[in-house]
């Protein structure tokens, strides 16, 4: 830490500084950072330790790793359909988050930029509809999808596409508000002048608005991705075939019956599940970090 702090490329006062002053200006920040890292990591450390614990049981796991064995990982792939779960989740979360931010950005654009009868009622309805607990609707979902499964097996029970359609039903409710708030902060002059220049509403949307709202697209995309990876209640009733399950459903099953014995495999699965999310995050973070409020503050 010290070495990093003592080799600044450009400081206003390159003269010698006392440790106290260094601490007052930079050091405490590292202290906060390190504390935060500790807080963030210790439960994860426990998971890592369990994942590499050759005994693979809950009771034999300590906070610090006691062994290094890939047995849990190989068991995971050999004894369960983990590969399928992983791909299902990835596909589902990828497609669903992409489609859902697309649908909701369309709606958010209309709600933010256009004035039409029923606009405010529509907005309020969107907010309210998602307050109704969706798990209660499971009976109705069975009703719909039993018919759909008979007619179109390709989008029925036990298919990622059926679940995808279902998640799309929630797309508007979840993200439209968030995006509309962001669209609202973009100055109207931008699209008005584009319109003056002869751009159609489609061009205004794709060419001007979407690039400007990239940060919020990244945020909602990340939210939607993580949301679908974690969704359990609906997926649990929807996917019963072992190879059609998602990570949340499959891995819950690992510990539902034998919590103690499968714990190592469960921990290994947890670590693997985190990988795509971390990658998506790395991909999107520059959009988020580079100016979430471009509109709000500069406008």
């Amino acid at each position: 830490m010290t070495t990093i702090a003592e080799t600044p490329t450009s400081t206003r006062r390159p003269a010698r500084r006392s440790r106290g002053r260094w601490f007052a200006q930079v050091g405490w920040r590292h202290l906060v950072g390190v504390l935060a890292v500790v807080f963030s990591l210790f439960p994860i450390l426990f998971v890592i330790s369990a994942a590499f614990n050759p005994l693979g049981t809950l009771s034999s796991t300590e906070l610090l790793p006691t062994g290094a064995s890939l047995e849990n990982f190989t068991n995971l792939f050999d004894n369960t359909a983990f590969g399928h779960w992983f791909l299902n989740s990835l596909l589902l979360a990828g497609v669903a988050s992409f489609a859902s931010i697309f649908l909701s950005s369309l709606a958010a654009y209309a709600f933010s930029r256009m004035r039409f009868a029923g606009r405010r009622v529509g907005l309020l309805a969107l907010l309210l509809i998602q307050m109704f607990p969706q798990f209660l609707a499971i009976v109705a979902i069975f009703l719909i999808f039993t018919t759909l499964t008979d007619l179109y097996p390709a989008i029925g029970f036990n298919t990622p596409w059926g679940l995808f359609l279902l998640y799309m039903g929630g797309a508007l409710g979840a993200n439209t508000w968030l995006m509309k708030g962001f669209f609202d902060t973009l100055p109207k002059e931008l699209d008005e002048s584009a319109t003056m220049d002869g751009a159609s509403h489609v061009q205004v949307f794709f060419r001007i608005m979407l690039p400007l709202v990239a940060p919020i697209l990244a945020v909602t995309g990340l939210l939607a991705f993580i949301g679908s990876i974690n969704e359990f209640i609906i997926a649990n009733v929807f996917l019963t075939e072992p190879e059609s399950k998602t990570l949340a459903v499959g891995m819950y099953g690992l510990v539902a019956g034998e919590r103690n014995n499968n714990f190592g495999m469960f921990a290994a699965g947890t670590l693997l599940t985190a990988i795509p999310t971390v990658l998506v995050f790395q991909l999107l973070q520059r959009y988020i970090v580079s100016g979430l409020t471009s509109g709000a503050v500069k406008g």
């Binding site: 499971i138 009976v139 069975f142 009703l143 999808f145 039993t146 499964t149 029970f157 359990f232 649990n236 009733v237 019963t240 072992p242 459903v249 819950y252 099953g253 539902a256």
Partner: peptide, 18 residues
């Protein structure tokens, strides 16, 4: 395998025919 609420899900699913 139905990991959670097997009994309820069985009753609901079978009533609807799935």
């Amino acid at each position: 395998a139905v990991s959670k609420d097997l009994q309820t899900n069985f009753v609901t699913a079978s009533q609807q025919g799935s």
